[in-house]
Simulated assay, not measured.
Amino acid sequence: MIDIIDIRSRVYAGAMILSFTRSDPWWNVIDPDALDLDSISDCILGQLYETFGGGLKALDMDLSEAHDSGFYVPLFAVNKDLDQLDEEYKALTKEWRTLITQLREADTAEVSLAF
C-alpha cells in the first residue's frame, strides 16, 4: 500500500528544490498530460532538463536524493515487487500533477488580484 503522506512530502521537497534552483516558474514548463515519472524523458527532470540523468546532473543530485525529492523510485527497492514500484510511480505522477495544477491556479489568482 502506498503511503500518500510520504509521496506528498517527497514531491513537496522536490518542488522546493526546483523553486530554489530554477529562475523560471518550472511548473509552467511541465506538460502534465505527458508527465510520467517512470519515463526518463517525460518525468519532471526529463521535461525540465531533457533527460532524468540531465536533471540529476544539473541539480547535483544522486539517486537517493532523487528518491527523497519525489523524482525516482529505486528499481530494486527493499520489499517491493514490480507492481508496487509501478503503483508508486503512478502515485508520484498523480501527486506532481496535482501540485502543478495548484501552482498554476495560484499564478492565475495572483494575476487576477493584481488588476
Rank of each mutant, 00 (worst) to 15 (best):
S9G: 11
L18E: 01
L85Y: 07
D38L: 05
P74V: 02
V78E: 15
L37E: 15
F20E: 15
I17G: 03
F20G: 09
K90R: 15
D38T: 05
S64N: 11
I7Q: 01
D107Y: 00
W26H: 05
A77P: 00
A34F: 07
H67V: 06
V78G: 08
S23Y: 04
E65P: 01
I5S: 10
D6E: 11
D86Y: 12
T93F: 04
W26G: 10
L113N: 07
V29Q: 11
A34V: 08
L56K: 08
F71Y: 13
E110I: 14
T108I: 13
Y72C: 00
L45R: 01
R8N: 15
Q102N: 14
L75C: 08
R22S: 06
A66I: 09
D6Q: 03
T93K: 07
D33R: 11
F20W: 08
D81K: 06
F76T: 12
L63M: 10
I44N: 08
Y89G: 03
L45C: 01
R97K: 15
V11Y: 02
V111N: 09
I2C: 01
D24W: 04
G53Q: 11
K80I: 03
W27S: 05
G46H: 06
K94H: 09
N79Q: 15
L56V: 01
M1L: 10
D42I: 03
A114C: 07
K90L: 13
A13M: 07
G70I: 13
F52A: 00
T98L: 14
R104V: 10
S39Y: 04
A34E: 11
E110G: 05
R8T: 15
G55N: 09
P25S: 14
P32I: 13
A109N: 13
R104E: 11
H67Y: 15
L59Y: 05
D6K: 01
Q84Y: 09
T93Y: 03
I5L: 13
A106T: 12
A114W: 09
D86T: 14
N79K: 15
A58I: 05
A106Y: 02
Q84N: 09
T98W: 08
Y72K: 00
L18T: 07
F52N: 01
W26F: 15
T101A: 00
Q47I: 05
S64Y: 08
D83S: 03
I5F: 08
L48A: 02
W27D: 08
G54I: 10
Y89D: 05
